[in-house]
Simulated assay, not measured.
Amino acid sequence: MKADKIFWGIVFIFVGTVFLLENFGVIDFSWRDIWRFWPLLLVITGVNIVFKDSKSNTGVIIIVLITTATLAFLTFKGLTGTQKTDDVPWEWSHNEDEVNNEENKEFSTNIYNEDYNAKYKNATLSINGGASKFSIESGSEKLFESKIKETISRYYLKKTDTDSTVVLSFNSKNKKNGFNFKDTEFSDVKIKLHTQPTWDVNLNMGAGKVNFDLSNNKINTINLKGGAADFNIKLGSLSEQINLNAETGIAKVSIEIPQDAACEIKTSTGLSSKDFEDFVKKSDGIYVSPNFDTAKNKIYINLKGGLSDFEVTRY
């Protein structure tokens, strides 16, 4: 048997087993916490490339041992990720005072907001974050309001507006205002949006969890990009047409849509699993709700993923 087939077989068994055990509640696995170790995937892929054409059993044994050891390490970190200890990946300090200061940091709640103006008819929110937990709900008197529990201000909010259109950029930052996964790995980002404008929402993140309840908002488009993440999106019936695009690596994507809205799902998902209950398969990779031709409101969902779990339900 070829070494590269053994390599990919082990990887698929690992990912599939973790998803299966997590779905049945047997384990609580944190994809967010193992995302920090993504360079290890480059290491084991490189080992596979070096030894895949080896005609001796030695190459196969090396691939199996290194791949198994790496995945075992990632399993351990994923299962114990929520129990933070004194490990700080990729950085080591020889100064005991610095280590103690890190352990004794106090968290505070930072608030970011922008006032609502009745002239705003269309609004765009673009979020760029690292490994965090993001939630969006409606109900704020502000155009945008966010509360984040963190040690320092790790995000910045920028607004630009022209006539009836407003654009908000909500980005993570490091000391040089660049993108930084480590800066946001423990952030719990809670966001509230005003219900009057029609929103475009763009999210680009590394790993973490997303809970977007947009059922009371008028939505035009939603674009989601993430690596190892858990996306939960709830949509409403206030817009005649909604376009949702999700592009993920190893992720779970759950989308809720209202019964009175028609829906078309297009998938390009590799080895991902799909659960589209009450949908009719129209052709390869295309599914529609039974009321697609008659309903006034329509939702178009485009899903792309490598090893992901996609689910669309109607409420």
Rank of each mutant, 00 (worst) to 15 (best):
W8Q: 04
V18P: 07
F19S: 05
E22A: 14
N23C: 04
N23Q: 10
G25L: 11
S30D: 14
L40V: 15
T45Q: 07
V47Y: 01
D53Q: 07
I61Q: 05
T67P: 15
L74G: 13
K84W: 14
T85K: 08
D86F: 06
S93V: 10
N95W: 10
E96D: 09
E96H: 15
E98C: 05
V99A: 10
D115N: 14
N122C: 04
S126I: 14
I127L: 09
N128K: 15
A131H: 06
K133Y: 13
I136T: 02
E141Y: 08
L143K: 10
I152Y: 12
Y156Q: 12
L157W: 09
S164R: 05
N171K: 07
T184W: 11
T184K: 03
K190Y: 06
L203Y: 14
F212L: 08
T221I: 02
I222P: 04
I222N: 01
N223K: 14
L238F: 06
E240M: 05
A246V: 08
T248P: 13
S254C: 06
S254K: 09
I265N: 00
K266W: 05
G270Q: 04
S272L: 04
F276S: 01
F279G: 07
V280C: 04
K281G: 10
N297R: 00
V312P: 15
T313Y: 12
Y315S: 06
